[in-house]
Structures are given as structure tokens and as C-alpha cells.
Simulated scan of single mutants.
Amino acid sequence: MTDTLAGRAEALRALHRPGDPLVLPNAWDAGSARRVVEAGYPAVATSSSAVAESLGHADGEATPPGEMFAAVARVARAVAVPVTADLERGYGLRPVELVERLLDAGAVGLNLEDSDPRTGRLADAGAQADLLAEVRAAADAAGVPVVLNARIDVFLGSGGDPAARLTEAVRRATRYLAAGADCVYPILLADPAALSALVAAVPGAVNALARPGAPAVSALAALGVARVSFGGGLYAAARAHTDRLLRVVRAGGDPFVADQSAASG
């Protein structure tokens, strides 16, 4: 089992290619994960917000860890490609237990945030680097080179000097990569010039978020990113589509006709 997981981890890591990024339309359950693979994607990522809402919880570590890992396990059992899990800030678990539960679920990669999911307050960069180093050491001890994606949250929220935020993001990215992260994820950074500057300044792979108002995947590739995530975007789009069909039913209409009309339009 460890050999299989190690092979999947290496395969996942190899998919992070600057300029030819790994594209991850994030899944939230076994069914959506299967559809991602059937569409031709070589790996599956979960979205913490999408998984949480699909389980009836709010985002921000409101999901009991057991439920989150069970959902990740269902995803991993459903597909034959590497799975990477969004685990927020680790649910307060010790790094050894976090890695153990990740591998028991069959996943070989994880996201970790550097802000408190409940308050949004940024963690001290040194403390976060220590956490990442402990996760890396736990993965090494388990014999699986887990792909560690370190999220950088300095661009969350509004306000602040853009240049100062970029400087802080580069500082954190450099520390996190030195601590053992494989990839850094400056979530919500969408300005092409700033993203290009960050890619050029950090010695490792960069993950960008695809969302409305952000550069298209092809443009992100041209900027040199190595990974593109959709976060909870596909889940939100599916939810919005379901809401529209429910309104059609409520109004006495035919949701199947409405669905076909939307598709043809």
C-alpha cells in the first residue's frame, strides 16, 4: 500500500510543470471525482468549502475531521489517479496524525492554509514554516513523499498596499518552500503583473486560483504557474444550476426542457 501511495505522490508531483500547469477542477464527492477523471484530468483535488457544504457544514473547519477524511477516502476509492485534499489548516491535528489520516484515506497531497479558518487572522510565517516542516518530516517517516501545497492568504480581504502584500507573499512563499512545501498557493492573487513577479521571485511551483475576473487558464500558464485550482467554483456553479431548475419546478415548468434550452443556448 505504501509503495502504491508513494508512486501516486511522485506522479502528482511530476504533474506540476511551470508553464504547462496541472489543472484541477476541484471535486466534492465520489461522483464529481469520477467525472473529473472521465473528462481526462490526470489528478483529482477536493475543495474544503465544497466538501463541507455537501456534508451540511460551513467552511472554516466546521466539518468534523472524521467526516472530512471519510469524504476524501470516498473520493480516493472512486478514482485510479492521485488525489490531493484541501485540509484547511489541519483541524488542529498533530502533523503525524494529519499525515497518517491523509494516507489512510488514500490521498497523496494536501493543502494547508496560513490563516486561522475561523478568524481569518494570518499565522506567523515562522510558525507556519515549522508546521509545514513537521508535516514534511511525518510524510518522510511514513515513506510517502506527500505533495504539500502551502496556501498563502495575504491577498484575502480588501485593503492594504498591493506592493507590500506582494513582498509579504514572496517572503512567506520562500520560507514555506524551504520548509518542505512543494508548491505555494497565493490564493486570490489575480493581477497578471503581480502573479508573474511572484512566480519569478520564488524558487518553486506556484498554484493560481481560476475564478471570475482572474486570467484564463491559458493566460495563467503563460505566466508560468505550475498548478491551477478551481476551488469551490464548480460546486458553486452546479449549485446555482440546481437552484435555477428548482425555481422552474416551483413555477410549474419542466426542468428537463429548461435544462436542454440552457444547454443549447
Rank of each mutant, 00 (worst) to 15 (best):
Y41Q: 09
W28Y: 09
L15T: 07
W28H: 00
L245V: 12
V154H: 14
A163F: 07
G19D: 07
A45W: 02
A58Y: 04
R171V: 02
A194G: 10
E67M: 07
A201L: 13
A14T: 10
R211N: 00
L220A: 12
A127I: 01
L93C: 13
E53Q: 14
T242K: 06
L122K: 12
L112H: 04
T4P: 01
V146G: 09
G224H: 04
P25T: 08
S264N: 06
A11H: 00
Y41T: 10
L148G: 02
T4K: 14
G60L: 00
T4N: 09
L234H: 10
L98K: 10
S48R: 12
H241M: 15
A139T: 13
L5F: 01
A216F: 02
G232S: 14
R172Y: 02
R101G: 02
G31R: 14
F230G: 07
T84Y: 05
R34G: 15
D124R: 05
G106T: 00
V79I: 09
V44T: 06
R34N: 06
A105W: 08
A262V: 11
D259C: 04
R77Q: 15
A137F: 04
R77G: 08
G19K: 10
L148F: 08
A52D: 06
V154Q: 08
R172M: 08
P18F: 05
S218K: 07
G231E: 01
A179T: 08
F230Y: 13
P212E: 03
V36F: 15
A71C: 14
R17D: 14
A142R: 11
R89W: 05
Y91E: 03
A200N: 02
C183N: 01
R151A: 07
G231W: 01
D104A: 15
T242Y: 01
A179L: 05
R171E: 15
D161F: 08
A208T: 03
E10R: 15
N26G: 12
L148K: 04
Y235C: 05
A222Y: 07
L166V: 10
G265L: 14
A194F: 07
D3L: 06
A78N: 10
G252P: 05
R247S: 11
Y176W: 07
R250Y: 11
